[in-house]
Amino acid sequence: MKQDKLIKAILMAVALSAIGGLGLITLFIFKEGLPIILQIGVADFFCSTDWSPGEQRFGILSMIVGSVAVTLGAMAIGVVFSLGLAIVLTQFCPPKVAGVLKPLIELLAGIPSVVYGFIGMVTIIPLIREYVGGPGFSVLAASIVLGIMVLPTVTSISIDALNAVPRSFWEGSVALGATRWQTTHMLLLKAARSGILAAIILGMGRAIGETMAVIMVTGNSLEIPRAITDPVRTLTSNIALEMNYATGQHRKALFATGVTLFIIIMALNTLAMAVSRRRVAGGGNR
């Protein structure tokens, strides 16, 4: 009995390492990044588009706009495809085919982001340059690449949400003479909407946090984009591009960029948790 208590205590200590790691990350990112935000001034840091590390001017507005633009574009593409896939896999697909498709979609999640970036660079960018205009490196290119990259995440969580809808709902609807598609879009999507919303929010988190693929296809210009064919720089690529040679205030400003990213991600995570908790509290959907 004593031995069991000891084991329990050890396991508990180990189990706390996840939250401990989160605490350390929060602590160190903020310790490095927060002072310089306060020193520059919150308004100047977030609302200025002037990022000139050489002259100690650090404003990240254009990167915030860049991140948001790229993320929204990615979601526009990714959500449509993810929902389509989730619906096909749960409603219209024989289980055997689904058994083949699902691992393939998971494989899509396993491909390194640098490979996505590279493929985007050598295939999508020349196409955009040729047929849409602009330099090719653009919000559009990043949206397409990220749209594909968030697809596995959004699809698999949406599948869970759709599968969680009780079978009896479906049977009731079909018994009333509804076709499969009518049942899906009138009933299943509504019943699973909070789960799907959580999937979309988590997908946004992935898109906004993606770094390497984005660097390779956005062109990394510091201008606020006026069109979807304009190049942009995101918060993540700003850090990755400059961290290797940054020192002093410049490095601290990059940590401040990280703080911004961290806050956005935490907000999205909390939102996703709140949305899916409501689903659990609403009952019936487990």
């Binding site: 969580i157 869970d160 949400a161 789960g195 959580a198 948790m273 899916s276 908790r277 689903r279 659990v280």
Partner: peptide, 8 residues
């Protein structure tokens, strides 16, 4: 959302 399960 398997990570949000609360059933032991």
């Amino acid at each position: 959302m398997p990570e949000l399960q609360t059933q032991p």
